[in-house]
């Protein structure tokens, strides 16, 4: 029996299952936080989020904005002296938070990802205009970057119609699997 089965109900257990690494690997040296490019925007440092999970403060971890501010740049993972993949850990925290329908603080980031994935689901390819349109409607953040759009359109960098993948059934299968 794998050890994680005994604590699979805890966040630590779920994360171990999703990432195949134990949160206890982290010895809290803080190197991840020290090198994180978005550290200044976070309330909790990355190592603190890991600490929450280590100690079983699952709510604190799931409600923290830190995983949502993570830019997935992998600086932390590549410098971790314990070979703990912090970025993967953050991926897993977000995944569990979504699954548990936690009311996350960083709603815009969540909506951005949803809008992006919806385009893939529909078209098989990312459709930037469609994604931005959907994101703006969701966030009501209507005027951000409006100054850039005309130029983008003019330069052919923003297509108004999606590029579609012809055969979409495999994409559907993958999305169905995570329902």
């Amino acid at each position: 029996m794998h050890a994680h089965n005994t604590h699979v109900e805890t966040l630590a257990g779920k994360i171990e299952e999703l990432t195949s690494q134990s949160v206890m690997q982290c010895y809290q040296c803080g190197k991840c936080s020290a090198g994180c490019p978005v550290r200044n925007y976070m309330e909790d440092s990355p190592n603190q989020v890991i600490r929450y999970v280590q100690l079983g403060f699952d709510d604190e971890a799931l409600h923290s904005s830190t995983p949502w501010l993570c830019a997935s740049c992998l600086t932390c993972s590549s410098r971790c002296p314990q070979n703990f993949d912090i970025a993967k850990f953050m991926d897993a925290v977000r995944e569990v938070a979504l699954e548990m329908e936690i009311d996350v603080k960083e709603k815009d980031v969540k909506k951005f990802h949803e809008a992006f994935l919806n385009q893939i689901k529909k078209n098989g390819k990312a459709f930037e205009f469609g994604m931005v349109r959907e994101y703006k409607l969701k966030t009501l953040n209507l005027f951000q970057d409006v100054e850039l759009f005309p130029e983008m359109l003019l330069k052919g960098k923003l297509s108004l119609l999606p590029h579609k993948k012809k055969d979409i059934k495999h994409i559907k299968k993958v999305f169905d699997e995570i329902k």
Binding site: C29, G30, K31, S33, A34, R39, N40, S45, N47
Partner: peptide, 10 residues
């Protein structure tokens, strides 16, 4: 560039 993990501050 470091982080004081006790204060939780970069």
């Amino acid at each position: 560039r470091g982080e004081d993990t006790i204060a939780g501050k970069p």
